[in-house]
Design a protein around this nucleic acid. Structure first.
Length: 304
DNA sequence: AATGGGAGCAACCGCAGTTGC
DNA sequence: AGCAACTGCGGTTGCTCCCAT
């Protein structure tokens, strides 16, 4: 085990970017003789490279079955799903994406998908909502929010790609989650300033910390909630705690369960052992407006 | 036009696992 | 069983290009 003496770097061997001539030598050799031993290949092919460098160049770039170009939306979705299940197992993830290499997927994740998830308030490592308030504040500029006086712009910000569409649903569902399970969190006015602009929801906006909303998991099985804004105003003007209110009024929302009965799954649980197919089905259903209980509500509210 | 910073990506490094003697 | 050789993988680096100032 461990590194072999022969793999210790030889300074006489070339490093760095490959030239066209080197590529041609490697391709020609493999076409004629197959891959065989990577250790012996460079010498036989007339390349002043180590075997490892040749293998990497072939598998990541020169292989004829490599798919080039941008990742398709369904490929993005597959990567996110598989990453939530497998973590940084890039080679395993790559095995589910024909023509894509582990290196390419890893780069795409680090430069693109990871940032998308962060902008959406989702921790790319755990695939759960970010709960660290400092981290969320740091993400504001990346989310296009320049006015810290109105943090709702961050939470409710629209972005058109699938990842953020996913997060938007979460935000509204989390509002309902807050209503159903906990006393209202209060905005820290020292952090956010005193003059943030109340929206059409008046006191409601002033009394919920939108960052905290992101920390709750999804609330499933909500139906017929179009009338919720008015109901919310009533609730927030009352002196009852939210659990008490819900015990008394939740049927008025058309929600059939008591708040105590909600057992909420995470957005995408990391490393749960769930099959990829099930996970994909689950996420697809969330992307489908016909199956999303929040879609009509979002429009009715005029938020999204 | 110059330049500084960030994004994207190819390639390298080093560790761990596997194979074969 | 033990060791060296070989392979695979994930993290990291550094180069190039592009864009904003």
């Amino acid at each position: 085990m461990g590194r072999s003496p022969s793999s210790i770097t030889d300074n006489r061997l070339k490093k760095g970017p490959w030239t066209l001539e080197e590529d041609k030598k490697l391709i020609d050799y493999i076409h004629k003789h197959g891959k065989g031993s990577w250790q012996l290949l460079p010498k036989k092919a007339g390349l002043n490279r180590c075997g490892k460098s040749c293998r990497l160049r072939w598998t990541n770039y020169l292989r004829p079955d490599i798919k080039r170009g941008n990742f398709a939306p369904d490929e993005e979705q597959t990567i996110i799903c598989l990453h939530s299940l497998l973590g940084n197992k890039w080679s395993t993830i790559a095995s589910h994406l024909p023509g894509r290499t582990d290196n390419e997927i890893k780069n795409f994740w680090n430069t693109n998908l990871r940032k998308k998830l962060l902008r959406s308030g989702i921790d790319p490592n755990t695939h759960q909502p970010i709960t660290d308030a400092n981290l969320l504040l740091n993400l504001l500029p990346a989310s296009g929010v320049t006015n810290l006086m109105d943090p709702w712009k961050y939470v409710l910000k629209l972005q058109e790609d699938r990842v953020t569409e996913f997060a938007k649903n979460r935000v509204l569902q989390n509002i309902l989650r807050v209503l159903s399970t906990s006393p209202l969190p209060i905005i820290d006015t020292n952090c956010l300033g005193e003059s943030h602009n109340p929206s059409q929801y008046g006191e409601l906006i002033n009394r919920i910390d939108p960052f905290q909303l992101l920390s709750y998991p999804l609330l499933p099985d909500i139906a017929n909630i179009e009338a919720l804004p008015e109901e919310l105003a009533t609730i927030f003007n009352s002196k009852e705690t939210i659990p008490e209110i819900l015990d008394n009024q939740i049927n008025g929302f058309g929600i059939s369960k008591s708040h105590a009965e909600y057992s909420l799954p995470g957005l995408v649980s990391a490393n749960t052992g769930t099959s990829t197919a099930n996970l994909m089905d689950s996420i697809n259903s969330m992307h489908n407006p016909n199956q999303s209980p929040t879609s009509n509500c979002l429009k009715t509210w005029g938020i999204f």
